[in-house]
């Protein structure tokens, strides 16, 4: 779409939306949010970009195919279940790790988080693929 306002706003908005989606993804375990909704938000950011600049630029910005992103997500999600096996626990058991960073803030790394990242990537990849295909089918 050829609009100066949209172009200028999109440059800021897309990066803001992507950052916000990661925030939503991270807070998701105990508070509203998570991989699915985070992925939807990120996909909407990418779709906004493709509406403003055209799908070929959006594809160029992504660098890899959307389906590869989804595949990586599926891989991470399956991997999060496998990790518990290395510690001798059954498949998909949640493991938690609190690294000490020497600062006030508490950081929690866990296999549920890895699973959520997987879901996030699957949603981003699948939705981006569908949206870009639809965008190109219209032309």
């Amino acid at each position: 779409m050829n609009s100066v306002i949209l172009h200028t706003a999109t440059r800021i908005l897309t990066s803001l939306i992507l950052m916000f989606s990661i925030y939503i993804l991270y807070r998701g375990h105990n508070e509203p949010g998570g991989g699915f909704i985070g992925g939807l938000i990120a996909a909407s950011g990418i779709i906004l970009y493709s509406v403003a600049f055209g799908s070929s630029w959006a594809r160029h910005g992504l660098r890899v195919s959307g389906l590869s992103v989804a595949g990586a997500g599926l891989f991470f999600a399956a991997l999060s279940g496998v990790l518990s096996g290395i510690q001798g626990q059954p498949f998909l058991t949640g493991l938690w790790y609190f690294p000490k960073l020497g600062i006030e803030a508490k950081v929690a790394l866990s296999t549920p988080l890895l699973f959520d990242i997987g879901v996030y990537l699957v949603v981003v990849g699948a939705l981006t693929t569908i949206a870009l295909e639809l965008e190109e089918a219209r032309d």
């Binding site: 595949g71 990586a72 599926l74 279940g81």
Partner: peptide, 22 residues
């Protein structure tokens, strides 16, 4: 206990890798 998940886990991992190399 791990082998019980084998029929699910291995095809899913393979499918994921196939998607990555789309």
């Amino acid at each position: 206990a791990w082998l019980l998940f084998w029929p699910v886990l291995i095809p899913i991992l393979t499918a994921a890798l196939c998607l990555i190399f789309w």
